[in-house]
Simulated scan of single mutants.
Amino acid sequence: MDNVNVGRHISGQFNEDLERVINHVMQMGGLVSKQVSDALQAVSETDEALAKHVLNQDYKINNLEVSIDDECTRIIAKRQPAAGDLRLIMAIVKTIADLERIGDEAEKIANVALENYSSKQKDLLLSLDNLGRLVLDILQRTLDAFTRMDFDAALQTHGGDAKIDREYEALMRQLMTYMMEDPRSIPQIMSVIWSARALERIGDRCQNICEYIIYFVKGKVVRHTTAEDMKNL
């Protein structure tokens, strides 16, 4: 990610400290995105080694969250920021919490690749592909919007979660139909359902991060704001 436009939002007194923290957030975001991408690849290719790699890398995301949170705490104690600077720090703290949870969802997806499936059931794993591509796209757009603290991009990306929800609901109907036709497949299908649910939750986490960006730029909490009202911000 590129932090070229972040500096314009930061008062000069905090440039060095905050830009270091933002670089660490971007590092965490890149790692989270790679985890989700690798987890989806492990599922589509039933790649056990790649799935285990995803599971083994989760500690890096956890460590980054703790480290960034500590940095933000030190900045608050040392600098006593106000107004926009404080909003930025709060947005960062909330963002890394959601990024850590996205990493947890990637773990759930990777675990699906470790299940035993028949050749017919493996075809069901491909049904995750469309949903996975949508989620990866919105995740990358969210990270890009955060990098630039871009209100317009955050607002547009926030609305994209509805597309993920529609794809998720369509996939659920498909999987439920499959289970009714072949009850013996229920244990394997449930794993796919939990994976799809993890992807849907990643979309929700991305929506949260977009709301933090809007909060920083506009100073408004939009967590319970309707889509129509958000257009008028």
Rank of each mutant, 00 (worst) to 15 (best):
K231I: 06
A39Q: 11
A198R: 01
S118A: 10
I102D: 01
N23P: 01
Q207T: 15
S33K: 10
R87C: 14
R166P: 06
A39P: 13
D38Q: 15
G132L: 06
N232H: 10
L125D: 03
L128H: 08
D58R: 12
L126V: 13
V135H: 05
K52V: 04
R79I: 09
L143M: 08
I202H: 00
Y59M: 10
V93Y: 00
L88E: 00
H24V: 02
L50A: 13
E100K: 08
I164N: 01
Q13M: 12
G7M: 04
I202N: 00
D129P: 10
R141N: 12
L114E: 02
L126D: 09
S185K: 03
D123N: 14
N23V: 04
K78F: 07
N232T: 10
Q188R: 11
S118F: 10
D144E: 07
L126T: 12
I10F: 00
N3H: 06
Q207N: 10
E65K: 11
I76S: 10
K220L: 06
M1Q: 02
M190P: 03
R87S: 13
K231N: 07
S44E: 08
A162L: 11
Y212H: 15
S37A: 13
I138H: 02
V93I: 15
D17I: 06
L55A: 13
I96R: 13
F151N: 01
L155H: 06
E105M: 15
V21E: 00
A77C: 05
M230W: 11
D150G: 07
K220E: 07
V217Y: 03
Y215T: 05
T73V: 15
Y168R: 07
C206Y: 01
N111G: 03
L139T: 14
E169Q: 13
H24I: 04
S33H: 09
K218W: 09
H158Y: 08
V36G: 03
E71Y: 15
A153T: 00
L143F: 05
N15S: 13
I89M: 06
S191Y: 07
A113K: 06
E167W: 04
A227H: 15
D229P: 11
E181N: 15
Q207M: 09
D38N: 15
E48I: 13
V112N: 01
A154G: 10
S191V: 01
I186M: 08
A83D: 11
L175T: 00
K94R: 08
D152E: 10
Q35N: 14
L88V: 14
I138M: 12
L124Q: 11
H9M: 09
D2G: 07
M149T: 03
T147S: 15
N130I: 05
T226E: 12
E115Y: 08
N111I: 04
E181K: 15
L175D: 03
L139E: 02
R87A: 13
G159V: 08
A97I: 09
L86H: 14
A196K: 00
L175V: 00
F146P: 03
L143D: 01
V21N: 02
T142W: 02
K220G: 03
Y178R: 12
A170T: 08
G30L: 12
E65N: 09
F146E: 01
D69H: 10
